[in-house]
Amino acid sequence: MAKTLNLTLRIWRQAGPDAPGKLVDYEVDDISDEMSFLEMLDVLNERLTKQGQEPIEFDSDCREGICGTCGLTIDGVAHGPVAGVSCCQLHMRHYRDGDTITIEPFRAAAFPIIKDLVVDRSAFDRIVQAGGYVGVNTGNAPDANALPIAKNQADLAMDAATCIGCGACVASCPNGSAALFTGAKISQYTFLPQGQPERKRRALRMAEAMDEAGFGNCSNHAECEAVCPKSISISNIARMRREYFRAALTRRDD
């Protein structure tokens, strides 16, 4: 049977990209413990709206952990206290009556705040744009089974490919580094034969794009892996580095 909770929320409010922000306290009562975290915020927003206040802006879309749109730092941890889930899959039964919860946006220089808890993650697109794909035009493909790929290679590629692009890795990283995101993408194609022709070019260009977008260095804190909703391993960061060294040392100007 559902229980109800009374909570204190301390939420970051910021009117616009350049406006100053601050934490504001909200008391929310009668929260069913079967709600998801975002539904709890929905309820708060409905109440605020009814009271003539401006609702809190936060982003979400699929609400089932796959689109990567949602992203909140909850009590200092990106996506909140449960490992391996994005915050849209976090449920209120993990909280207790009387809890105080601090909710902040994903913080990183490369993710400017748009409003309240919503940030702009287009820097990720710029990284992908630099090489997160196999450059094959439509219509150029041979038969799908013409290229056998060992099952475990395909599985490893899939492990890396499950990244949902949420940006929690960046938000949780004390250095605002996008190494896990970039490493996962580079790794996916490193495992696959389709990725070989552009292997060096991809590593160099994506790493460069990562730097240019203003992300920090990776100091190997591994906080990113701990918050990643897909539990993507930092071994992908190491792989990115190998790919990068290899390319940087042996490339010819192309």
């Binding site: 794909y133 196999v134 094959v136 439509t138 219509g139 150029n140 493909a141 041979p142 038969d143 799908a144 089974n145 290229l147 056998p148 790929i149 060992a150 099952k151 395909a154 599985d155 590629a157 899939m158 490919a161 996916q188 194609y189 696959l192 389709q194 990725g195």
Partner: peptide, 18 residues
Amino acid sequence: DQCVAQGVPFAREYGGTL
């Protein structure tokens, strides 16, 4: 064919086929 060429990691058999 197109998706495989793009590197979509479809499930595979041990022999390497889809």
